[in-house]
Amino acid sequence: MENDRTNIDDELLASYMAGEANADDTAVVEQWIGESEANRRYFEKLKVLWENTGRVAPHQEANVDVDLAWNKFKQRADREITDEPVSKAKGRHLYFYLSRMAAVLVVGFVVYLVYQSLEKSPEANQVELMAKAVTKSDTLPDGSQVALNVNSLVTFNENFSETERSVSLQGEAFFDVVKDDKKPFVIKTKDVIVTVLGTSFYVEAYDSLNTVEVGVEEGVVQVESYGELVLLGAGERISIDKGKQKVSEPDKYNPNDIYWKSETLIFKNEPLAGVFATLEKVYNIKINVENPRILNCRLTGKFYKESPAHIFEIIETNFELTSVEQNAGFTISGDGCE
């Protein structure tokens, strides 16, 4: 019986238990196991030892005491393997081979834990700029300026500008970007990616709104949304319908869209239809017009930090109209214009 056991290579047995044996070696081991009861018992003892103290399954998440497992393996290997009537040299040979195999697996498991840790951790610490009840302005690490409208948030990695310039936006912001040909400036929202080299522009992307707007004051930006790419130049604006996933044709940039930043309203021969639409948006009011001809009148003027009531006083004087403030809005009456 003892001769039967010495007719198998111990490294072949360990390779078989580790699942590393090829088809030919597997056949040799399985044939050897079936040749005698002593062979089978010897193999089963090695297998139990291997499973309890030597093997590590990298796909299992568990708290593992590596030192305890290693000591347990050595102690049991010393005690149990040498209980079998195998030559001393042969037992030592198998012990060292199994030790090496266990060490490789332990190292592999440690590498796996490190990989899992890196995979689950954020790529880098995030920096947040937030405007809640009031607007906020700040300077980014590359020197670019950003102004945030209320209820808006910009986030970026703490290593911003070292390898790339990328920010995420929720809400509305105006950017004045420092030019860098090698590092484009990228703004990401849920529905739009805006890429620039150096320019001034705004992005309005509130989750509560059905549209996203991008308007360019200076320079050129690239807007990517729902598979479409659009280049916008100075004085142009587009809107993206999130429901229809459609990008509009570029139209004229309206500086009044960033009143929240400039606190200035500018009208150049603007029909009162457009003036009233701007006032409703800026001041969150409702304007009722009793005579449609009023909407034909055209206004030219610049208003800095003016109240709606004062603006309507100017409109009344210019066009001989009457305004009545009521119910958080205004009602306008008069003959209007041709």
Rank of each mutant, 00 (worst) to 15 (best):
Lys179Ser: 12
Asp9Cys: 00
Arg55Val: 12
Phe276Met: 04
Val212Ala: 08
Glu162Trp: 06
Val178Met: 09
Val247Ala: 06
Val154Thr: 05
Thr139Cys: 06
Glu325Arg: 14
Ile314Gly: 06
His59Gln: 11
Cys297Trp: 05
Pro271Met: 01
Lys120Thr: 09
Lys183Leu: 08
Ala328Asn: 15
Leu229Ile: 10
Glu263Pro: 01
Leu295Trp: 08
Asp335Ile: 04
Lys120Cys: 03
Thr211Asn: 14
Gln60Arg: 15
Glu128Gly: 01
Val214Thr: 12
Glu320Lys: 15
Arg165Ala: 02
Thr26Ser: 09
Tyr283Met: 04
Ser152Tyr: 00
Thr139Tyr: 10
Leu153Ile: 14
Asn39Gln: 04
Gly198Phe: 05
Tyr202Ile: 00
Asp181Pro: 00
Val230Leu: 14
Ala277Ser: 13
Glu236Gly: 02
Asp181His: 11
Asn7Met: 07
Glu80Arg: 06
Thr278Pro: 03
Leu229Lys: 13
Val56Arg: 05
Lys188Glu: 10
Glu119Ser: 15
Glu11Pro: 00
Lys305Gly: 02
Gln170Ala: 12
Leu197Arg: 14
Leu129Phe: 12
Glu218Pro: 00
Phe276Trp: 11
Ile294Glu: 01
Arg293Leu: 01
Asp251Asn: 15
Asn39Met: 04
Gln31Gly: 10
Gly19Trp: 09
Gly219Lys: 08
Ile8Trp: 00
Leu94Ser: 05
Val134Glu: 14
Gln222Arg: 15
Asn296Gly: 08
Glu290Trp: 15
Ala103Ser: 10
Glu11Tyr: 11
Val48Thr: 14
Thr135Pro: 13
Arg92Cys: 11
Arg41Gly: 04
Thr155Lys: 10
Ala234Pro: 01
Asp142Phe: 08
Pro58Ile: 07
Ala309Lys: 12
Lys261Ser: 05
Ile285Val: 13
His93Val: 05
Ile238Ala: 14
Asp181Ser: 08
Thr26Trp: 01
Arg5Phe: 06
Val289His: 11
Ile193His: 12
Glu20Phe: 02
Asp25Leu: 00
Gly227Gln: 11
Asn256Ile: 00
Phe319Asp: 00
Ile314Cys: 10
Leu229Ala: 13
Phe319Tyr: 02
Arg5Asp: 02
Val150Phe: 08
Glu316Cys: 04
Gly108Lys: 15
Lys190Cys: 11
Lys120Ala: 03
